[in-house]
Design a protein around this nucleic acid. Structure first.
Lengths: 173, 173
DNA sequence: GTATTCCGATTGCATTTTGCAATCAGTTGC
DNA sequence: GCAACTGATTGCAAAATGCAATCGGAATAC
């Protein structure tokens, strides 16, 4: 469960945090999908994580300092998982990973539209998004002016626009 | 051995390429350490990869299109592994991963100096480095002016300077 | 008030992946 | 000829993964 520290190399240590098939998927769903509860992550991810693996990874990510857990006041047995600053600063890495995947791997159009938007937006958009995440997960005051559409809302809107357009195209055929 | 394609999400697909404990380590040693032969990678990495895992991953990375293999003309049973463009474009991701690790994980000073240099250099340095890699691995003409010190040479020099400084400090104690 | 659903897990078990040491046959240097 | 080196392969134990079933407590529907 704990980190190995096979060496003190930064890339190696990062890899010991993410070098498995599920940890980054969970963080992706929390960051971009806004999921905070066990069941949301379990049922929401396209890749279909098993509940025992999810439980194990949530525990591990908490031990590593990427997540925290708190009781949901509205529901006695519900737990809310929050991203820490450590996890929020992964946004640029996620953006790069998505951009690389979009170029070299057989991504689906619907799912890559968000990566594209994130890539186009660049550092300023990532900063705005991280600010938004700090607001949601850490209770930090938002520095974005009121009325500005949230980054996650933009990502979702773009996704839904593609889905709608494709449905339209399918109907015409 | 082959890729799963659990979903067409760019981040997921990228993760199916790197979501293990060794693939990125091997690429790191080839990119930053300049290693091209089986034995060089096997004995050179600090983390101590096993030979069967290395053989397996080299095969896998070739199947995925990140590496190619060629005979070494100087030695009949030696194989030379080369990075493809697909692998070379991982440099920015490596730089980000290293930068993130440097902030959040217990990196050692000697090993993080290279990540620091790469971070400070930013996109221009990454471009120069990728150009250098294309020259070494793809036979592309180098666009950097003659006499310019190579990025890998800079990284090595910085590393050796830290090692020497620390040895000096240890002697004085 | 009671049946049903939902909550975050846990358990058991078969399959797959990993880590490790030993080994291989061909090649090279001497 | 022979030791060292080349890129692997094999056998085996241990760990991780995937999957289905299940748990006790809590909320919800009626």
């Amino acid at each position: 469960m704990n980190i190995d520290r096979r060496s003190g190399c930064p890339i190696n240590l990062s890899l010991e945090v993410f070098g498995d098939r599920w940890s980054l998927i969970i963080l992706r769903d929390m960051i971009f999908g806004g999921r905070r509860h066990f069941r949301e992550i379990l049922n929401g991810s396209l890749e279909g994580i098993a509940s025992n693996i999810l439980a194990d990874r949530l525990k591990r990510l908490m031990e590593l300092g990427l997540l925290t857990k708190a009781d949901d006041p509205s529901h006695k047995q519900k737990a809310i998982y929050s991203l820490t600053e450590m996890a929020i600063t992964l946004v640029p890495i996620m953006a790069h990973l998505g951009a690389w995947g979009r170029v070299w791997l057989p991504v689906s159009e619907e799912l890559s539209i968000r990566a594209e938007l994130l890539e186009k937006g660049g550092q300023p958009l990532w900063e705005q998004f991280m600010d938004e995440l700090r607001h949601e997960h850490l209770g930090a005051p938002s520095r974005t002016p009121a009325g500005t559409p949230g980054v996650r809302a933009q990502l979702r809107a773009a996704y839904e626009a593609v889905v709608a357009r494709n449905a339209e195209a399918a109907r015409e055929r």
